[in-house]
Structure formats: structure tokens, C-alpha cells
Computed example of a mutant assay.
Amino acid sequence: MVKIGSGAKRALKDVILSRYAFRSTYNPCPVSTNKTISRLDPTVKSWISFGERFYGEERMDTVDAKTRSRMMSGIRNKNTKPELTLRRYLHAKGFRYRLHVKTLPGQPDLVLPKYNLCIFVHGCFWHQHSRCPYATIPKSNTEFWLKKFAININRDEKTIALLLDRGWRVFTIWECGLRKADEVILGWLPKTIKGQERILTWPEY
């Protein structure tokens, strides 16, 4: 059984329910096979059942299994394009940071010691950005992906909690927000970094 904490449960609930388009008539969700549900936390099972009863078609991936496999093999977990975009922007604004500090939980993508801040740049697919159009669920091997997403969400939650307990501030910047980032889109960030906000996620849908 997939064990997840309360915060991760809330996030996974959003993941599941945000994948449905509203329908007035019952239409079973193809992802919710009995085999899949049996391995999930009982609370999550009830959410899937709720989604099946009151929602309809799941938003599935738009590419086939072969294409998805090729895309997955080419994805980096460090120095990604969104991460580089954020790094260039912050550096141009005069911020200095350390990268992927191994002594900190989760090895944050950017660490700004002067502001006691850790920043994670998360991919919307891998970390299942709530309600984001890029946070799709692959058509093939769906059971595997649901389990993986639950594990990722749980790990992210634990990492943030550990950093907060150590007195760090934690920002999560999502890939989708950096796709067309410019001075205007990121204009809010410098002031926020210098502020007192302890935890932040951007953008939110």
C-alpha cells in the first residue's frame, strides 16, 4: 500500500480530481481499476470513487507509450531549462546562490544563504503540479505512474517540512511559470525573496 502523509494526501486528492472534466452522467474513470485502487491508501480510494461518481473523463497523456518513453529518457533532474532560466534571472538581479547543496534535505536547486532561502524548481509532470495542464497521467502503465506520483509528492512534503524545521524558508517554483518567464512575469520575486514569507509555491491554479 502506498503510505502518504496528510499534506501529500491533499495534494494527491487535487491530482486525482483535477484530472477529471465535469460530466453530468456517470462515466467510470479508466485509471481506477480495482488492482490500482487496492494498493492505494483508503482515503485516496474514496477520492477516486468520488471522482468516478461525480466527474467523468480523466485527462490522460496525449502521447503514445513510445514517445513518452523517449521524452522521459531525455529529462534531466538537475540544470534543467526552467532552472537555468531562474538562475539567470536571479543572477542578473544581483542574487548569489549555491546549487544543489548535498547537506540539505532534498538538495535544493538553489540556496540563498543571505536570505535563509531554499528554492526548488519542480517539473509539473514529475511532481504533479496541482491543476496544471502539464501534469498529465500517461495512458500506459497508469498504476506505476500513480504510485510514483504519490511517492514524489510525499517526498516533497517531507523535504519541505525538514527544511522548515531547520529554520529555512522554502519556495517551490513550477516549470510552467518559467516557460515564458520575463522581467514582468518574475517581477514579484526579488521583493518576495527579501521578505519574510516562509513557504511559497508559484504559480498556483
Rank of each mutant, 00 (worst) to 15 (best):
M1C: 05
M1R: 14
M1D: 02
I4C: 10
I4M: 11
G5Y: 07
S6M: 11
S6C: 07
A11S: 14
L12Y: 09
D14A: 14
D14G: 12
V15C: 09
I16L: 10
I16A: 08
I16M: 06
L17S: 06
Y20A: 15
R23A: 13
T25N: 11
N27W: 08
P28M: 12
P28I: 10
C29D: 15
S32L: 07
T33P: 00
T33F: 09
T33M: 12
T36F: 12
S38T: 01
K45E: 09
K45I: 11
S49Y: 15
F50C: 09
F50S: 11
Y55T: 08
G56I: 02
G56V: 04
E58W: 00
E58P: 08
M60H: 13
D61Y: 00
D64Y: 03
A65C: 03
R68T: 09
M71K: 14
K78N: 13
K81D: 12
L84C: 04
Y89W: 02
L90G: 03
A92H: 03
K93L: 11
G94T: 07
F95P: 03
F95E: 02
Y97E: 01
R98W: 15
V101N: 04
T103P: 10
T103C: 09
L104I: 04
P108W: 04
L110Q: 02
P113S: 05
L117K: 04
L117R: 06
I119L: 09
G123R: 02
W126N: 08
Q128L: 07
Q128T: 03
H129G: 00
H129D: 01
R131V: 10
C132W: 02
C132G: 00
P133A: 05
P133W: 00
P133G: 08
I137L: 14
I137H: 03
S140E: 13
E143P: 00
E143N: 14
W145H: 14
W145V: 07
N152S: 05
I153S: 04
N154G: 01
E157P: 00
K158Y: 01
I160T: 08
I160N: 04
L162P: 01
L163W: 10
R166L: 12
V170L: 06
F171V: 04
E175Y: 06
G177T: 01
R179E: 07
K180Y: 09
D182S: 11
G187Q: 03
P190I: 04
P190Y: 05
I193R: 06
I193D: 02
I193Q: 04
K194H: 01
G195W: 07
Q196I: 12
Q196N: 14
E197L: 15
E197P: 00
L200S: 02
T201F: 11
W202D: 07
Y205D: 07
